[in-house]
């Protein structure tokens, strides 16, 4: 049973979402403030955090950054429709996905399940690209021999791209393959995730070698 931590300050929304998520088969812990949320995340080791951006003490972005600094758990933001600035800032702070409030519980559940989906382990396939070694069986990525801590979404994105080096993937394609969203998904999810992944595996993220941008179309892995 997936263990979730819901950080939301409004008591009614918190209660409603807790009922809904429990009903969908999740085990739900809740927190009303950012600090409490960070404590509970540390103590409870949840699989994913559902995080409201508007919190009274620490705002959601700061909570997101602090969670990211110490963990690789999946983070889904709750945002208001059209608050594009919040969405971009939240994705930059490290969120894997976001949903717009008010959210249909089914939609939230589908997103949670998508970010938590177990990554299929390939039988004993170790790929080496330059300094990067991807162990598809152990789901371990190392750079120059040192393991790189990736979130499930980042790992999935890297596995998809590296599976077909030099093949160009459009953003909507990646949204389907990695986020399991249809074409309506927000392409900024892809861009933000690529940025984070570059920061972790590229020598120089501004002149990427592994994750290259194909302007106006999407991304591809290599040539290394």
């Amino acid at each position: 049973m997936p263990r979730l931590l819901l950080i939301e300050d409004d008591p009614a929304v918190r209660e409603g979402l807790q009922i809904a998520l429990r009903h969908q088969g999740h085990q739900v812990d809740t927190a009303a403030t950012g600090r409490d949320g960070l404590d509970r995340a540390r103590a409870g080791q949840p699989d994913a955090v559902v995080l409201d951006l508007m919190l009274p003490d620490l705002d959601g972005f700061e909570v997101c950054r602090r969670l990211r600094a110490s963990t690789s758990l999946s983070i889904i933001m709750l945002t208001a429709r059209g608050d594009d600035f919040d969405i971009v800032a939240g994705l930059e702070a490290g969120a894997d996905d976001y949903v717009v409030k008010p959210v249909q519980p089914r939609v939230l559940d589908a997103r949670i399940r998508a970010v938590l989906r177990r990554i299929g382990r390939a039988p004993a396939a170790v790929q080496s690209h330059g300094d990067i070694v991807i162990d598809r069986a152990g789901l371990i990525v190392t750079k120059s021999g040192r393991p790189v801590a990736l979130t499930p979404t980042e790992l999935r994105l890297l596995l998809v791209l590296a599976e077909s080096p030099l093949q160009v993937f459009a953003r909507d394609q990646l949204l389907r393959l990695v986020w399991e969203q249809d074409y309506l998904g927000d392409s900024r999810l892809v861009d933000a995730c690529v940025q984070r992944l570059r920061a972790k595996i590229e020598d120089n993220p501004s002149t990427p070698v592994y994750l290259q941008t194909v302007r106006g179309f999407g991304y591809r892995f290599g040539p290394v």
Binding site: D10, V13, G16, I19, A20, H23, P102, V103, Q104
Partner: peptide, 20 residues
């Protein structure tokens, strides 16, 4: 509309439970 959104978010969350 923005003010309505918060109570609505709480209500909408439980509609599936209510339906079932």
């Amino acid at each position: 509309s923005h003010e309505l959104r918060t109570p609505l978010a709480a209500m909408l969350a439980v509609t599936d439970v209510l339906d079932e």
